[in-house]
Design a protein around this nucleic acid. Structure first.
Lengths: 229, 229
DNA sequence: GCAAAAGTGTTAGTCATACACCCATGT
DNA sequence: ACATGGGTGTATGACTAACACTTTTGC
């Protein structure tokens, strides 16, 4: 048996955990599978990697086909490679997660996805393949990352209130945080700019809206600053 | 073109960054390739994954073939999948790192490795494929991990002095640390047990030797303790 | 007795935590 | 006027960082 017949008989896929945040709730975008295997079940979006595309490219293609979005925070999580994880043959999958602003787009059903819906992170159904395991890895990775890099903002609209960002942290980390201490720490980093705008039409004192100063963050990084929340 | 002919024409490999520590120096085990491609160059040990083995199994097999060791700390780093990274076809590689005690074994040259040698982390030659990039990822991952989990001990003999473990941290993290503060913090965690033994035949005051109490660590973890250095 | 690394405490400053009331708006 | 969430400061304890001299051994 030569090398080609012995080894070059496998495939790899990418699967994406797409996180969004809405109404104080962390959400994940699941698709309703329109193709076998597991046609007709909720699953993570993903696809086989084409022979002529890089892994990261492939993950971005999947995201773009589904959401139309392309400049999005995305990172590799882990690769899952149990022998029998895929019913059609030896397929390992490289898992990615990405962070999107829910309000930025409408979902485009595609060839492999008949439908797609946001699912609250606490109400995830049983998923096919090893997708529940992948999702657990994604949550853990997001928890670690969000404390050491200012990626939470990727999930919020351009302008947001301090309470919104706090709720985001609380729901990602699954802990409660003290309002005064949270604000003190976050504002002390000097990475938020007061937009001068406030909420309106809310039945309480309107909150000031801030935005994240990406340029300032990058320049602070160069000076040795390290984000931590 | 059906699915099999279109996609099931690729392979995947595992590559291992095997770290060791000796004489105050972090080292990496490189092999001298005995097979094409890149026969006759230093490279990371690795092999194609067999169709009937899990990814992690495969990484452990590579390590065992080379060193004979099997109960070793090992963790996945990242998966590298540029289209043209391998000259023989579409091969993505899943990179792992492991931490071994250098004194525990002698290297076994194997089918794919004509020879193997420890290379100081600061003197790594140009490596084939994307192996230099993999090594950089491994270093970064190790730096992050060693601060949040007591894995440094995996690189030291059963019994070690406080100065040895400090040097290990210094060379992994590429920083200098204060002797008194380091000891205070480490001993305060109450994870080291004084073996009652000291160094001998050293031309200075002999150091006490300690060992790491794995059981105690596991029980503290359950109570919510989190390691941090 | 000299060289070499081991071992050991205190102080000052910074950071994390805990905590409660008044304010602005819509209904 | 009431309900709702927005906005703000202080005090205490914990942790971090900086720093220098004595001890034990081999040669």
């Amino acid at each position: 048996m030569n090398l080609v017949s012995q080894y070059f008989r496998s495939a790899f896929s990418v699967d994406s955990v797409i996180f969004g945040f809405d109404e104080s709730d962390l959400k994940v975008l699941l698709i309703y599978r329109g193709a076998d295997p597991y046609k007709g079940t909720w699953a993570l979006p993903g696809d086989l990697v084409r022979l002529d595309e890089d892994l990261d490219e492939s993950a971005r293609r999947v995201l773009k086909e589904l959401t139309g979005l392309s400049n999005v925070f995305m990172e590799q999580i882990h690769t899952f490679g149990k022998v029998d994880r895929h019913p059609m043959g030896r397929v390992i999958t490289v898992a990615y997660y990405s962070l999107v602003k829910i309000s930025d787009f409408k979902i485009n059903p595609s060839s492999w996805a008949k439908d797609a819906k946001w699912h609250s992170i606490n109400k995830i159904p049983k998923l096919p393949f090893d997708h529940n395991e992948i999702l657990e890895f994604a949550k853990t990775k997001l928890k670690e990352k969000v404390r050491h890099q200012p990626i939470g903002f990727e999930l919020l609209p351009e302008k947001f209130s301090l309470t919104e960002i706090q709720h985001l942290y609380e729901s990602v980390l699954e802990i409660e945080m003290d309002k005064r201490n949270f604000r003190k720490k976050l504002l002390a980093m000097d990475l938020l700019v007061d937009s001068g705008i406030s909420q309106n039409a809310v039945a309480h004192r309107p909150a000031k809206l801030f935005s994240f100063d990406k340029k300032k963050y990058k320049s602070l990084i160069k000076k040795g600053f390290s984000f931590e929340l």
